[in-house]
Simulated scan of single mutants.
Amino acid sequence: MLIESLTHQGLGRTADGQFVPRTLPGEELGLRDDGSVQILTPSSDRVAPPCRHFKTCGGCAMQHAADPFVAHWKAGIVTRALAAHGIDIDIRGIHTSPPHARRRAKFAGKRTKNGAIVGFHTRASDTVIAVPDCQLLLPSLREAIPALEELTVLSASRKAEIALTVTDSKAGLDVWVESDKPLDGPLRITLAEFAQRHGFARLAWGDEPVVTINAPSQRFGRADVIPPAGAFLQATREGEMQLLAAAVDATKGADRIVDLFSGCGTFALPLAETAMVTAVESSAPMLNALDQGWRRAQGLKRVKTETRDLFRRPLEPDELRYFDAAVIDPPRAGAQAQTATLARSTIPRIAMISCNPVTFARDAKVLVDAGFVIDWIDVVDQFRWSAHVEVAAAFTR
């Protein structure tokens, strides 16, 4: 068997349509007697995986490939998505976050006979494996795994799996537990004592705050923001800085900016250093965190907030006419309805951030057909060694 290409999920594809994980284009494969795949002719782009968990963990797909190959492959995912809509443009830059940079991770926790296991799922499976030497995580997250195992024993029922979203902050770890176990009074006291003992900044259980020992703030420009428990945050600080730099570049010189799908202020607050900003987001708690961060900061221009579901009720052209530029950072589904109103508006500049090249290309086509030009596109690889790709682009009329 010869691997002819890679899918957008990182699977090797043969001429007869078979898909083989952890292979690269040009590699010739054979089958062993037990049915497993043997690489007979390895690619020159093949490297030794840096993580000992790679063969079992489902978190990474591309550790067997050299960094330049992965960067080129991810850029190709973006260019092919755009080409499907008739858009031909070169990628301006590719920015990959370093190892040991993930500041936020969602672990799976499961009780065992002797305690608990905390880690990630194996590929396409519900099986949880321990990842004590994960090469993605910040040391603070990796070193917290024993404490998270103890937390799993306290938080999980005997058979159900729990989710533990852990975020690094200046004040310590911010931990959000998702469990079907009832949070009663005695458990709340036990969890608060546990968080104190392990130096967690905050511990939350679903929608219930358990204890806040130190405010788990995040720095956005000049502002310190305390996001709601489990709120969206860019996966790495390095990736966030690249996306922010792209947004600043695309909106340079604007005096009034609207930040659509603003979250807690990743872009809105730094942009407020030079422009008045209106932040629009469906989550009232996230907007409240943004507003409080703005009010405590020094030297920022006016930031207004509006709670609004932009999928059901996008800003209309008459509302957009007040702005010189827009920043839009939708979830994976893209922003079809909001893009359509942006296309009909008079707004001259748009910074589009996307975590899905397919929906990005679809929405970009709408803007291009409306008279916008794509000035440049950057690829930002926050999710190193995965198939995940993020895009930042500048559109002008």
Rank of each mutant, 00 (worst) to 15 (best):
R295E: 09
A335T: 11
R296W: 01
G299T: 02
F323P: 01
I328E: 02
R295H: 14
R321H: 13
Q336P: 00
Q298V: 05
E319H: 07
R332T: 07
V303C: 03
A326L: 12
D329Y: 04
R321S: 14
V327K: 02
K304F: 11
P317C: 11
Y322S: 13
P317E: 12
D324Y: 07
L290C: 03
P314S: 07
A289S: 13
A289F: 10
G299R: 01
W294T: 00
D324T: 08
L320C: 12
Y322F: 15
D329A: 13
A333F: 06
A297L: 09
A337Q: 14
L315R: 05
K304M: 13
R296N: 07
G299V: 02
F323D: 02
G293W: 03
Y322N: 09
R313M: 10
L290G: 01
W294R: 08
R332W: 08
K301C: 03
R321L: 12
R332A: 08
L315F: 11
F323Q: 03
K304A: 14
K301N: 12
A326G: 05
D324V: 11
L290K: 05
G293Q: 03
W294E: 02
K304C: 04
L290S: 01
L300V: 05
E319P: 03
Y322D: 14
Q336L: 14
A333V: 13
A335D: 05
T305P: 00
G334F: 06
G334D: 09
P314I: 08
L300T: 03
R332D: 05
K301P: 00
G293I: 05
A335K: 04
T305E: 00
D329S: 10
V327R: 01
L300M: 12
R302P: 00
R332L: 10
P330G: 04
F323I: 12
E316W: 10
F311W: 09
Q292P: 00
R332V: 09
P317R: 01
L300C: 06
E319M: 13
A325N: 01
T307S: 11
